[in-house]
Amino acid sequence: MKGLLVKDLKIIMQNKTMLAVLVIIEAVFFVMQEADGMGFVIAYMMMGCGMMALSTVTMDEHDKSMGFLMTMPVSRRDYALEKYVLTFLCMLAGGLAAFLPYGLLLSGEAGRMFTAVMGIVPVMVVIQMVALPAQMKFGGEKGRIVLACIFAAVMLVMIAVEKIGKQYGGQPWLRDLVKEVSDGIRKTGTAGAVGIAAAVCAVCIWISYLASRRIMEKKEF
């Protein structure tokens, strides 16, 4: 797997333009919005770097090099696992690159930083966990279309939930349900919320990895 990681890091480093754009946009937001833009910048950098990891799947597909890689001493499972390791390394690097300037700026406001990070990291993880198997299954162009469709479907569901909420918001049973859930979350405290978020992320990662592994095992080159 080390060889695959080396290959993908080399591919990412070749994409200097994208790396430069990420850093410039981060710097611009940092200067313009200061502390208010922290959540956005962290999300942006994690997403951008995660996408760069994702693009290595596209590159493997595009140059038909995936078949060649599978003749080397790596298994299909190794390939799937490596893409997850790479994605998390890239997201971590992007998140840290975004977080560190704010860490210096808001060194006395740990709570504020914690809230910003906790609010955004699970969302970014879930998005990447949907994107990875989609990219492995459908490849470059199709993968992007499928991904756009998935996110469009999520948006539609959210809109539907909002409308249903408005329509039935006055119903006592719905009010009670919402109250029970929010009370439950409040009772768990910060540690509980972090635990729940971590558990959700872990389940998403595991399901996503199993799906990617299966996709790779079934793939023909």
């Binding site: 591919i11 994409n15 590159m59 140059d63 038909k64 090099s65 078949g67």
Partner: peptide, 10 residues
């Protein structure tokens, strides 16, 4: 392989 090798950007 006739049609594939390492990724072209390497």
């Amino acid at each position: 392989l006739a049609e594939s090798t390492f990724c072209g950007t390497l």
